[in-house]
Design a binder for these strands. Structure first.
Ligand code: MN
Ligand code: MN
Ligand code: ZN
Ligand code: ZN
Lengths: 141, 141
DNA sequence: TCAACAGTTTAGAATGATTCTAGGGATGAA
DNA sequence: TTCATCCCTAGAATCATTCTAAACTGTTGA
């Protein structure tokens, strides 16, 4: 019941989510969280989200878009995916999964964690621990 | 015998390599190729290589460093590795392998291709073909 | 209710890696 | 040696992202 809050109070779900992450539910964060977390999982760039916010009639500065995306990521609500030098994608899917990167369109597509298997991983170098394993399958026409 | 040309003519190996790639063996490209391809495989940023060239007494502009790195990559002599938004690493190892990325030092470490196994890869989306599969194991203290 | 402080937002400047421009220089086929 | 082609480079330009500093807002507890 934290998932798709299509109840009567349209903001409660998103507000609870922000509070749960230790973030004040400000007008900007609520609007962005609604765009990001209601509906399907998505991969967005800062510019993408800025455009969507504008289109939705919400006025938010680009600096706030970047701040929010990083705060959501630090809070574990999203993750950052790096596939191209020079552009960052933010992913609302924080579960175990990997990506197809479509080199010609610049878009990402999820590969569920159980549809890929990385084995025989060598141990992390002395004193280090593995933070994450990213598999990026680059495809193009 | 293309590998470590410690013969008497110190440039012949590198020159042959450049010609073989369809690149004119200019003074700058020869110097950079020597720094990059003689000795162990390496992961460098444009700034790294620029610094090394200067240290070696070779005057090369940063624009030429970028041009050369891309030309070497396009020619298949190197490959580009993306692990952090905002910075590109170029790798002299073009064989089958993956990477540890040390998040605290920003350095890359090879994982030989036979020490990691990616299986059950789903088929590439319709009409697309897989260009490359990158596995990045992010580690930190 | 509301003062007051900490947390937020933002316009605009600043950064930093990379790319572009355009003019002078080097290379190599003939 | 010639000459067309390919290269190199300083410096300007891009572009995504971050920073600054000042104005604003959410929260809290008197
Ligand atoms: Mn980040
Ligand atoms: Mn490139
Ligand atoms: Zn994803
Ligand atoms: Zn490598």
């Amino acid at each position: 019941m934290t998932e798709n809050p299509s109840h009567n109070r349209p903001y409660s779900g998103v507000i609870a989510r922000l509070k749960g992450a230790g973030l004040r539910p400000t007008r900007q964060r609520i609007a962005l969280a609604k765009l990001l977390f209601e509906g399907e999982n998505r991969h967005v760039t800062a510019e993408d989200l800025h455009g969507e916010a504008r289109a939705a009639g919400v006025s938010v500065s680009l600096a706030t878009i970047y701040n929010s995306l990083h705060q959501f990521t630090d809070a574990g609500l999203m993750r950052e995916v790096v596939v191209e030098a020079g552009r960052s994608y933010f992913d609302t899917n924080t579960g175990d999964h990997h990506h197809f990167f479509h080199e010609d369109t610049g878009s990402l597509e999820d590969i569920p964690g159980d549809q890929i298997n990385v084995s025989e991983l060598p141990a992390a170098p002395a004193g280090k621990s593995v933070q994450r394993v990213d598999v990026i399958v680059r495809v193009s026409a």
